[in-house]
Simulated assay, not measured.
Amino acid sequence: MGKKLLVLGASGNTGQHLVKQALERDHHVTALVRDPAKIEIKHDKLSVEKCDVFNKEEMRPHLENAEVVLSCLGFPLQRKEPVPYYLQVAQVLSETMHEFGKRRVVFMHSWYTHPESRARCRGFFLKNFFLPYVIGQSLNGMRLSEEYLDSTDHLDYTCIQPAHLLDGPVTDKKFILNETDSCIADAAQEINRADVARYMLDVIDDESSYRKIRAIGVGVDVTDKAILTDDNHSYVPNCPIRISRADVARYMLDVIDDEGSYRKIRAMGIEGDDSYMAVIMEQIDEFKKVIFRN
Score class of each variant (00 low, 15 high):
residue 135 I to A: 12
residue 136 G to A: 02
residue 136 G to I: 00
residue 136 G to Q: 04
residue 137 Q to G: 02
residue 137 Q to K: 08
residue 137 Q to F: 00
residue 137 Q to E: 03
residue 139 L to Y: 09
residue 139 L to Q: 09
residue 140 N to V: 02
residue 141 G to W: 06
residue 142 M to N: 03
residue 142 M to C: 07
residue 144 L to P: 00
residue 144 L to Q: 08
residue 144 L to C: 06
residue 147 E to P: 01
residue 147 E to G: 07
residue 147 E to V: 01
residue 147 E to I: 01
residue 148 Y to T: 02
residue 148 Y to V: 00
residue 149 L to C: 06
residue 149 L to V: 05
residue 149 L to M: 11
residue 150 D to C: 10
residue 150 D to F: 10
residue 151 S to G: 13
residue 152 T to K: 01
residue 153 D to Y: 01
residue 153 D to M: 00
residue 154 H to M: 06
residue 155 L to R: 03
residue 155 L to Y: 00
residue 155 L to H: 01
residue 155 L to G: 05
residue 156 D to H: 03
residue 157 Y to C: 09
residue 157 Y to R: 08
residue 158 T to Q: 10
residue 158 T to Y: 13
residue 159 C to W: 08
residue 159 C to V: 15
residue 159 C to A: 15
residue 160 I to S: 09
residue 160 I to A: 09
residue 161 Q to W: 04
residue 161 Q to K: 03
residue 161 Q to V: 06
residue 162 P to W: 12
residue 163 A to R: 00
residue 163 A to V: 14
residue 164 H to I: 08
residue 164 H to M: 04
residue 164 H to A: 03
residue 164 H to P: 04
residue 166 L to M: 12
residue 166 L to G: 12
residue 166 L to V: 06
residue 167 D to G: 15
residue 168 G to E: 09
residue 168 G to S: 10
residue 169 P to N: 08
residue 170 V to G: 07
residue 170 V to K: 09
residue 171 T to R: 03
residue 171 T to E: 01
residue 172 D to I: 04
residue 173 K to T: 12
residue 173 K to P: 04
residue 175 F to G: 06
residue 175 F to H: 08
residue 176 I to V: 02
residue 177 L to K: 11
residue 179 E to H: 06
residue 180 T to M: 08
residue 180 T to N: 13
residue 182 S to A: 02
residue 182 S to C: 02
residue 182 S to G: 02
residue 182 S to Q: 00
residue 183 C to Q: 13
residue 184 I to N: 00
residue 184 I to F: 03
residue 185 A to M: 03
residue 186 D to K: 07
residue 186 D to H: 10
residue 187 A to L: 11
residue 189 Q to L: 15
residue 189 Q to D: 14
residue 190 E to P: 06
residue 190 E to G: 05
residue 193 R to K: 12
residue 193 R to Y: 02
residue 194 A to D: 07
residue 194 A to G: 05
residue 194 A to K: 05
residue 194 A to R: 05
residue 195 D to R: 05
residue 195 D to S: 04
residue 196 V to I: 12
residue 198 R to M: 06
residue 198 R to Q: 07
residue 198 R to T: 10
residue 200 M to P: 13
residue 200 M to T: 15
residue 200 M to G: 15
residue 200 M to R: 14
residue 200 M to D: 15
residue 202 D to F: 09
residue 202 D to M: 13
residue 203 V to H: 09
residue 203 V to W: 07
residue 204 I to E: 14
residue 205 D to H: 04
residue 205 D to C: 01
residue 205 D to S: 04
residue 206 D to H: 15
residue 206 D to P: 14
residue 206 D to W: 13
residue 207 E to M: 14
residue 207 E to F: 14
residue 209 S to W: 07
residue 209 S to K: 14
residue 209 S to A: 14
residue 210 Y to N: 14
residue 211 R to P: 09
residue 211 R to Q: 08
residue 211 R to M: 05
residue 212 K to W: 01
residue 212 K to T: 03
residue 215 A to I: 12
residue 215 A to N: 12
residue 217 G to E: 07
residue 219 G to H: 06
residue 219 G to C: 04
residue 221 D to E: 08
residue 221 D to F: 05
residue 221 D to Y: 01
residue 222 V to I: 15
residue 224 D to R: 07
residue 224 D to I: 06
residue 224 D to G: 03
residue 225 K to C: 09
residue 225 K to W: 11
residue 225 K to Y: 14
residue 226 A to R: 13
residue 227 I to L: 15
residue 228 L to R: 04
residue 228 L to Y: 02
residue 228 L to A: 01
residue 228 L to P: 00
residue 229 T to Y: 04
residue 229 T to S: 05
